[in-house]
Simulated scan of single mutants.
Amino acid sequence: MHQVYVLKRPHVDEFLRRMGELFECVLFTASLSKYADPVADLLDKWGAFRARLFRESCVFHRGNYVKDLSRLGRDMNKLVIVDNSPASYIFHPDNAVPIASWFDDMSDRELLDLLPFFERLSKEDDIYTMLQEHKSS
């Protein structure tokens, strides 16, 4: 039995709620399920995550756990990964929305600032154009 403490990134509740309304969301983490599953239970009050994938679903590649999006069985033209580690999405960099790592800055607005982008993206057929524009802005 272990106690786990989690400091929630500012605006994560609003972000997850809205993403769950706009998209089919899948939690894909390199963490072990015994740790990440209880944390996801605490974070995901709205059932935004329709599926959860853990370390055993990752590919161990050059010392890193890589999230191979092709394993999701979805159209790659409609898949986006939000991650703070470029090594995690090295197989699919064109599908990535990089996000800064977060530790304890309670004034952080990154998730809140991403909401308008994802609201626009949800209406697009060609995600790659918008993703490229987002990365270059």
Rank of each mutant, 00 (worst) to 15 (best):
S85D: 10
H61I: 07
K123V: 08
L42F: 08
D94S: 08
R62A: 15
F91I: 03
P116S: 03
K34W: 10
V97L: 09
S33E: 14
L114W: 02
I90G: 04
R50G: 10
R62Y: 10
S88H: 09
R120N: 13
L111V: 09
V80Q: 10
H134V: 00
L42E: 06
K123Y: 00
L114R: 01
L115D: 11
E110T: 14
G47M: 01
D125E: 15
E124Q: 12
N84V: 05
S85H: 09
R71C: 05
L43P: 00
A40F: 00
N77K: 09
P116Y: 02
A96H: 04
N64P: 02
P38L: 01
V66N: 13
L27K: 11
S101M: 14
F60M: 07
H61F: 14
D75H: 11
V80I: 08
S33T: 04
V26M: 11
S31R: 12
P98C: 02
D125R: 15
P38V: 05
D37Y: 04
S107R: 14
H134P: 10
G47A: 05
E119L: 09
R52K: 10
R74I: 00
D37R: 07
E124R: 12
K123M: 06
D83E: 04
H92Y: 12
V26R: 10
D104M: 10
I81G: 06
W46H: 12
G73S: 04
V80E: 08
A48G: 06
I81T: 06
V82N: 00
R109H: 12
S57C: 04
I81S: 06
M106C: 12
A87V: 08
D83R: 01
D44E: 01
F103D: 13
K123A: 12
R55D: 11
V59S: 11
G63N: 06
K135P: 13
D108S: 03
E56T: 10
E56Y: 13
S122P: 06
S57A: 13
A40P: 01
F54M: 03
M130R: 15
S101R: 15
N77I: 04
G73W: 06
H92T: 01
R120E: 15
L114F: 03
L131E: 07
A40R: 09
V97H: 03
G73C: 01
S70A: 12
M130Q: 11
L79K: 08
E119G: 09
S33R: 15
V39M: 09
